[in-house]
């Protein structure tokens, strides 16, 4: 497992995180679990603490809840070397990696510049759980082009209209689903809100 970069943390610059990590991470996790179990539903994480500059509240909450020394994280270059990186290293203790294939999680804040979904770890035929989970921070979880979702977790169909995704993203998501059991899983965050798109969800692009 790659070690944390050796840069010294200035603790005075590291903002606070959960006040009660046990209770708060449990509450955040239940929201994330509900999101993954019910693709297309929007969860509210307004109760979570402030996140450092560059990270939305929901993104920070997910990092605090799921990242630790066992999960190499691919951190968006936009956050590298900044306060958010120091905050994550201190509170999560997670190793950072530049190699998307080695990442258990990717934290993406600039979706337009991010590598394609297929660049991350797609999992192994026998261990598809080893694929990367992408946490993608967007300007908003609504207002974008609408897609229809079906599959596990969805009664008949659901829909999402995420804003700020690059052109061709939903085609990538379709390709990601098409090679199930391989594929990445996605968590989208914007401000206090969160939704998820596991690899099992079938996407129909509207207007096609």
């Amino acid at each position: 497992m790659p070690a944390c970069p050796p840069a010294i943390l200035n603790l005075a610059d590291v903002a606070a995180a959960f006040i009660d990590p046990t209770r708060e991470s449990q509450a955040v996790f239940r929201k994330v679990m509900d999101a993954v179990a019910r693709p297309g539903t929007i969860q509210d994480l307004a109760f979570a603490p402030d996140a450092p500059q560059g990270l939305d509240r929901a993104a920070g909450a997910v990092a605090l809840t799921l990242f630790d020394f066992e999960t190499p994280v691919w951190l968006d270059p936009a956050l590298r070397g900044g306060t958010a990186e120091g905050w994550m290293r201190f509170h999560c203790g997670c190793p950072l990696t530049d190699d998307p294939v080695k990442a258990a999680f990717a934290l993406i804040t600039d979706a337009l510049a991010a590598p394609e979904l297929a660049a991350f770890n797609q999992g192994d035929a026998k261990y598809p759980d080893r694929s990367t989970t992408l946490v993608v921070q967007l300007p908003a979880l609504d207002g974008g082009p609408r897609v229809t979702l079906t599959g596990p977790g969805i009664r008949s169909e659901a829909s999402l209209a995420l804003a700020g995704l690059p052109n061709g993203f939903w085609e990538q998501a379709q390709a990601n689903q098409a090679k199930f059991q391989f594929g990445v899983d996605l968590i989208f965050v914007a401000a206090d809100r969160l939704t998820a798109l596991p690899r099992s969800t079938r996407v129909t692009i509207q207007g096609n």
Binding site: M33, D129, T133
Partner: peptide, 10 residues
């Protein structure tokens, strides 16, 4: 928790 999320996704 991480395992649960992967289990739900697959």
């Amino acid at each position: 928790r991480r395992s649960i999320l992967k289990a739900l996704a697959i």
